[in-house]
């Protein structure tokens, strides 16, 4: 019997929340069903854009965090 998949299943697939046999079946459905495939492509594209749009803190803040951690070592070694 062919399983029917929803748009929400594709979301779960993209975020690795479907495993085993279901994942394999959904993968096939995405290949064969143009609507699911379009959605999949759109979701992958926006997911990539979200990853690329992450902001980085300044080097000063990063340094200050590292220094805080190191300062605790110095205290415990005293």
């Amino acid at each position: 019997m062919t399983k029917t998949f929803t748009q929400d299943d594709v979301i779960r697939y993209v975020y690795d929340e479907i495993s085993g046999e279901d994942r394999e079946e959904l993968k096939q459905a995405i290949i064969c069903d143009s609507e699911l495939q379009d959605l999949y492509k759109e979701l992958i594209a926006i997911k990539r854009q979200l990853d690329q749009s992450m902001k980085s803190p300044s080097d000063k803040v990063t340094e200050s965090i590292l220094n805080y951690s190191k300062s605790l070592n110095l205290l415990s070694n005293k």
């Binding site: 748009q7 979701l43 594209a45």
Partner: peptide, 9 residues
């Protein structure tokens, strides 16, 4: 989540 991602796209 679906609405958020599709709207953003």
């Amino acid at each position: 989540m679906r609405y958020a991602l599709i709207n953003l796209r």
